[in-house]
């Protein structure tokens, strides 16, 4: 049990998917301007990431490995991820139309979020068991959501600050993201 908690903490904080592995930077910049949008995006990605990690484990161990089709891995995983995203889109549209409006184009773009494919591939690389894969996916997604919400909070504050003309908008956001990444490196001491 403690192994799983350790895995969860280490994927969420120590090996944070955005700030340490630099996967999924597009939503970090794209949907972090408003807090509720960031939280919604984080939760949607959590759902997709966990489900995709589990589905890709099943695909790898029940279909690709027994048939010796490892070279089809990326293609098959993308197929599964795209389907999960489609499903999530339908679900959100049904459950929360306002969230659907806020997320807009970024919802289908979860398909191309490299964190989702990255986690699925890392699961295979590290030869995780099913539960470990699920934990790894969920932990990464938690880390993703945490960073997205933190960053959205920072950007909401940045929006009302007097930033030098040169750094207004995206540049200052990138600098803040870099500083946040440096801060997250401190979690390496946990391990």
């Amino acid at each position: 049990m403690s192994d799983y908690i350790l895995l969860l903490v280490s994927t969420a904080l120590v090996n944070n998917v955005i700030l340490i592995k630099f996967l999924g930077l597009c939503p970090l910049m794209g949907v972090s301007t408003k807090m509720d949008g960031a939280l919604g995006m984080g939760l949607a990605t959590t759902f997709v990431l966990s489900l995709a990690a589990a589905a890709s484990w099943m695909l790898e161990n029940w279909l690709l490995n027994p048939m010796g089709l490892q070279y089809l891995r990326i293609l098959a995983f993308i197929l599964v991820i795209a389907s999960v995203v489609q499903f999530t889109e339908m679900l959100i549209r049904k459950i929360s139309p306002p969230l659907y409006q806020i997320l807009g184009i970024y919802l289908p773009l979860i398909t191309t979020n490299c964190a989702v494919l990255g986690v699925a591939l890392l699961n295979v690389q590290n030869q995780h068991s099913f539960i470990q894969s699920l934990m790894f996916g969920f932990g990464s997604a938690m880390g993703f959501t945490l960073v997205l919400v933190l960053f959205a909070g920072l950007r909401e504050r940045l929006a009302v600050l007097q930033v030098p003309e040169l750094y207004k908008g995206a540049p200052i956001a990138f600098i803040v993201a870099g500083l946040l990444s440096v801060a997250f490196m401190g979690f390496a001491g946990l391990a």
Binding site: L69, L72, S83, F87, K94
Partner: peptide, 25 residues
């Protein structure tokens, strides 16, 4: 290599089709 992918696509398409019926707005 083509057959498993086709099979996978068919199953996923079927599941999405069912989901879209159930979750229709």
């Amino acid at each position: 290599s083509v057959m498993p992918l086709t099979f996978l696509g068919l199953i996923l398409g079927l599941l999405l089709g069912i989901a879209s019926r159930i979750l229709k707005v």
